[in-house]
């Protein structure tokens, strides 16, 4: 069997019976408990749906979006750089010829599987055209079905960048 035996730290009897360490740990948790019991106003928890987080910075990696050109069409040229960089392999692209003269190539399908995405931001770094960003500030993404977590091209294009509060 592949059991790896790890040498234990601590040689003295006090270390080896563990009880002092356990008691120490218990004291720590008890300290926290009593402090918070005495005065609950110390607790920094947000009352989430009523209180929304205010500290989402502009660099926060939220749900992705595809940026647009000035004429409103998709900026992405389906170069597959994001799909190549993605460690979770959650970006699925199919390229197609672009006929409208703006460019040569565009994505026919651009899908991000949010259930597989690890939100590393690698795609944003890799994009040579600044076509994908994670600046929507959306930190919750809720759906009822697995299929709904597949963000399609239209969906990704419909997201807007989060407005920075003045």
């Amino acid at each position: 069997m592949g059991i790896k035996i790890v040498k234990r730290e601590g040689k003295s009897f006090k270390d080896r019976i563990y009880l002092p360490a356990i008691l120490g740990g218990m004291m720590t948790t008890l300290g926290h408990f009593l402090r918070n019991l005495r005065d609950t106003s110390n607790i920094k928890t947000l009352n989430y749906p009523e209180e929304q987080p205010k500290d989402i910075t502009s660099r926060y990696r939220g749900v992705h979006r595809l940026t647009k050109r000035d004429d409103g069409s998709v900026r992405c040229v389906a170069c597959f750089m994001c799909a190549t960089a993605c460690p979770a392999e959650c970006i699925f692209i199919e390229a197609q010829e672009r006929e409208d003269g703006v460019d040569e190539k565009m994505p026919k399908v651009f899908t991000i599987d949010l259930l597989e995405c690890v939100f590393c931001g690698g795609c944003v770094e890799a994009c040579p055209c600044d076509a994908i960003r994670m600046d929507t500030g959306i930190f919750t993404f809720v759906a009822h079905k697995r299929e709904d977590f597949l963000l399609t091209k239209d969906k990704l294009l419909s997201f807007e960048a989060k407005k920075e509060k003045a």
Binding site: H32, F33, N36, L37, N42, T45
Partner: peptide, 10 residues
């Protein structure tokens, strides 16, 4: 509740 207080939550 105890878990919450021990972990500095509500």
């Amino acid at each position: 509740r105890v878990a919450g207080f021990i972990q500095d939550r509500m």
